[in-house]
Design a protein around this nucleic acid. Structure first.
Lengths: 332, 332
DNA sequence: TTGTACGCGTTATCAT
DNA sequence: ATGATAACGCGTACAA
């Protein structure tokens, strides 16, 4: 590999001048800069990323830390988010280094160690639960973090998500506007903040209509298709007055759809079902799912952009709400 | 950050001894090794990846180079593959650095530069066309490569894929066994080797049945749902004798399904449709797609495993065929 | 404006 | 078995 030394020799200058010229320092004659740039191009010189990171004590790499990267996922959330992160990162010459937590792999190190070892410029964290074992250590550390779908509880770190509460309220209001009065809510895992937000939106809508909250209408699906299926399989026959189920994720809505089919309950005639996320399968479900669309690519892009701003010390808001869309299809 | 120096001071030895102890060199007293390990653990020491890579002239990072990472993909191929790569990589303490080509981003550098800058231990390449501008430079370079779905044309590089020809033949034979004699084939982009392989399998099956090859039955869908839709929209009405279409990808099969629905052609009664890949949507299509299942997570895992073997100089085959499954659903 | 020289944290070579 | 020290390629403080 050609190093800065080669360029220096070729351009008849010292390595210091090469470094200055290539990094846009002002104190370099235009003539020598030209010569150096030409030499660099001719030799196809590219700075060694490790050497640079070593001396700068910081790499030009973003870590993308995700929980729940596992085989056979029914949605492309990681991929879609990655597209957005990648797009922004590549626009500023940064790379993406992956880290998956809890993919039941035995890892010898935590993502905190991971981030430190590589002197990551910053990390984007997604899918983590606030009770994760390394969460606090990471966001209290010296490496800038942006969280996707987790609230930022410190001014030092960033957070991007859609307005989950508003979106959930919107969905519930849609059901209410269509005459439904006994609406069940299928929540995800309690430790995910989006679960809380979405249930808050659901409750707010009921309240707006002056409806009483029935605790027995709160179902637990753990963001899992199977768990949701199991939950409603017992619940629906026992609660015939329930005419709609709003699910905190499409996957759970799919589980509800399957249960309804087996119970011979027609959707949407006898039971309206609304999901959340608008995963790819939502539009292809039978019937197609009415749901809240969130654009994970936008989320990823905004997360990366915010991370870079934080790194550069820009004084920008550390919380960003990305627009969502309520999509009415056939299921409710 | 705690460095090797801190550990050395804490354990009252030189940094050289620490390095030896931590890297499992034999010439270290068991007593001092214990002391060093204890110190390392107490100080939560983790070697600086950049410093190590710099001196070793090779990082412990795999590059994952993909073409076609773009927003709104209808399949999770990248994500699924990543899961497999990640699983193997993390089992050997390696990380994954991403690189997307041609996502119409202006990148200042090629993936060859990318790989060199980071002194990648090796790269896994997916979705690239053999006529890609940097392809030869990359695989002729000094960095080990494993290709997914591209044939290896050199003994230095690896290649993993399913047996595309056999799978395509299997699918075509299925149609033939069900009495179809006028079977159209929707191919992908010609520069993708899987297109060639799959059309070869199609042709082999016809030949086995002593059927003539009709060039007009060869449709071009460019692996695109819309292109496939357009292609059959004209073709099907003009060729009523065609009773089956075998598509080189599920996405194209989805396009055919859409066209058939608009043309009021019943699938599978009047037209059998078979896809390829078994993307998530395949099972949810209407009717569910009969298709060839390929496990991208396996593909990724095997690619990473092979890459590591090549790096370690293991004398193993550089071509690996991962099993596929023919899945009969309702469409054909 | 340009060059010299040091340091980043590690591995490896050579003494001891 | 252990320690001192040279490299790895780069940025930068300081000297010229």
């Amino acid at each position: 590999m050609t190093s800065i030394k080669d360029v220096a020799n070729h351009a008849k200058v010292s390595i210091a001048t090469v470094s200055r010229a290539l990094n846009g320092a002002s104190n370099v004659t235009e003539a020598t800069r030209k010569r150096i740039l030409a030499a660099a191009k001719e030799l196809n010189y590219h700075p060694n990323a490790m050497a640079r990171s070593l001396v700068e004590k910081k790499s030009r790499i973003f870590g993308y830390i995700i929980s729940g990267l596992k085989k056979g996922a029914k949605h492309c959330i990681v991929q879609d988010t990655l597209v957005g992160i990648y797009e922004y990162a590549s626009s500023i010459g940064y790379e993406i280094l992956m880290f998956a937590v809890d993919s039941n792999l035995q890892r010898s190190k935590s993502y905190v160690d991971f981030a430190n070892e590589h002197a990551l410029a910053g990390v984007i964290i997604q899918g983590l639960r606030t009770d994760d074992q390394y969460y606090r250590e990471m966001i209290d550390g010296r490496i800038p973090c942006v969280l996707i779908d987790l609230p930022a509880d410190s001014s030092r770190i960033g957070s991007v998500s859609i307005d989950n509460a508003a979106a959930a309220k919107e969905a519930t209001l849609h059901l209410l506007a269509h005459g439904h009065r006994n609406i069940a809510f299928m929540t995800g895992v309690d430790e995910a903040s989006v679960s809380t937000e979405r249930s808050l939106g659901y409750l707010a809508a009921l309240q707006q209509f002056g409806l009483a909250i029935k605790p027995e209408y709160l179902l637990h699906g753990n963001f899992s298709e199977d768990d949701a299926y199991t939950a409603v399989k017992d619940f629906l026959p026992a609660s015939p007055e329930v005419s709609a189920v709003f699910c905190a994720s499409d996957l759970m809505a799919l589980g509800v759809l399957r249960a309804a089919k087996e119970l011979n309950i027609k959707v949407p005639q006898e039971l309206a079902v609304i999901g959340f996320d608008d995963i790819l399968l939502a539009a292809y479900a039978d019937p197609p799912l009415t749901t809240v669309h969130q654009d994970f690519t936008d989320l990823g892009f905004e997360a990366a952009r915010m991370l870079y701003n934080i790194i550069k010390g820009q004084d920008v808001p550390h919380t960003r709400t990305v627009p969502h869309t309520f999509i009415v299809r056939k299921s409710g």
